[in-house]
Amino acid sequence: MPLFNLSNVSKPVELNYDVAIVGAGPGGLSAAIYAGRAGLKTIVFEKATEGGQILLTDMIEDYPGFTSISGNALADEFLSHAKAFGANFANEEIVEVDLESNPKKLKTDLGNEYTAKTVVIATGSNPKKLGVKGEDEFLNRGVSYCAVCDGSFFKGKRVVVVGGGDSAVEEGLYMTKIANEVTLVHRRDKLRAQKIAQDRAFKSNMKFIWNTVVTEIGGTKNVEYVILKNVQTGETTKHETDGVFIYVGLTPNVEIFKKYIKTDENGFILADDHMETNVKGVYAVGDIRKTPLRQIVTAASDGAIAVIDMTKYF
């Protein structure tokens, strides 16, 4: 990543817009590019840093046009692209919305009240919790969901990575560069991650424990061990470790919209072929949406479809 990153410097100019995009991941930023090109007055809200979850990814190799690019650099490309076509950015968190009023209202944590004729929900998802004993207790004492944020605290130490998907394997690989010992614990007997990531993992010094789940995270002051249970034999063992990185799926950031928007049983938003939700003029794009694939390329596609459809309201 660039040694000095400026992506967070952004100031809103006013309060009333054609399009309000909540979340600046690939879905939101793609929508911002298309909205800008459609001549719509656009604002994008981001509570953390523009880029979304791709900022948590060390290297990206599956977005067309970039054989290999850091998550941070790709986020920068998306962001400057959206800015080039006139999107405004506000580093404010939306805390309350009124999607039934016309125009729709969005209140931020700074107390500002914005309005927009249409809204794109691109709030994405957060890593899901494992839901085991000790997970919350050791949250800031060795349990982490972000290898690029917290990896450096485990230099030369032992870590356990939980999960078998792309995130688990890729972030596990990232940790092999920092930690002394990386053990991936997966509940099945094979990985779900893309083949190329699997091949790299098997070639690396990562260790694997198959058919096993973590049932407890324990220690005194900091994480010292996890309790592992083999799902086939039922046998439990104690595995010593200094850190636990958890990548067992995603949980949607949908809370503030739930009152208005229909979701599936897991909280992912139901949208039609044009990405429009059950509320007219409100769209859902990217990870937040019920969709068979959650990738940068699919989120970007969602954003484009949503904005092209939205132009019918202007």
Binding site: N8, N91, V148, D150
Partner: peptide
């Protein structure tokens, strides 16, 4: 903070 943490500037600011 760490320089690679995208959530951190919000807390610092």
């Amino acid at each position: 903070v760490t320089p690679t943490c995208p959530y951190c500037p919000k807390a610092v600011l």
